[in-house]
């Protein structure tokens, strides 16, 4: 067993422990912190795969922004009487969604012909290529995705405002 395998096992352990923590803990705030552990563990695996750019974006977006927004929502909405609610009737749906996405992702991962550099000199896809693909070849889908996000943002503000000023 070489150093890379050891590091991979350690990172996988951290990621899985974080993921199990998210679903196993009784405390929602703890769940958010465990989620951070899992997400940073995934960033570590990206670094191991020489995908520095993806790792840094993972830390920037998920580690910084998403976890904070999540914590914010939990802290501001959690009241003592709601704290007991840990379950709802959507449980079977969640199981189905998890299994379907596991199946689809493993299908995609196993059937895609990956571009591999065996010499370990650098990432198979540099971040320059990634940028060109995102903003030139796939520019329109990118714009549509950002438009959808903008609409969601404006919608959230409208809903919040409507309750504030009747």
């Amino acid at each position: 067993m070489n150093l890379g395998t050891l590091v991979f096992l350690a990172l996988t352990g951290v990621t899985l422990a974080g993921g199990i923590g998210v679903v196993a803990t009784r405390n929602v705030v703890y769940g958010a912190f465990f989620l951070l552990v899992a997400l940073v563990g995934v960033a570590g695996i990206f670094i191991l795969l020489l995908a520095e750019f993806l790792a840094l974006v993972q830390v920037l977006i998920y580690g910084g922004a998403v976890t904070i927004v999540l914590l914010f929502a939990v802290m501001l909405t959690q009241t003592p009487e709601q704290r007991r609610v840990q379950d709802n009737p959507q449980r079977p749906l969640a199981v189905v969604a998890a299994l379907v996405s596991l199946f689809l992702f493993s299908l995609a991962a196993l059937t895609t012909p990956w571009k591999v550099h065996d010499d370990g000199a650098g990432p198979a896809v540099s971040f320059q290529e990634l940028g060109i693909a995102l903003f030139r070849d796939w520019g329109l889908p990118f714009e549509i995705a950002s438009l959808v996000l903008l609409v969601a943002l404006v919608g959230a503000v409208v809903i919040a405002r409507a309750r504030e000023e009747p």
Partner: peptide, 13 residues
């Protein structure tokens, strides 16, 4: 540069 930006956001947590 991206590394510095990414790491500094962790301090919010």
């Amino acid at each position: 540069l991206l590394y510095i930006v990414a790491v500094s956001t962790l301090s919010i947590v």
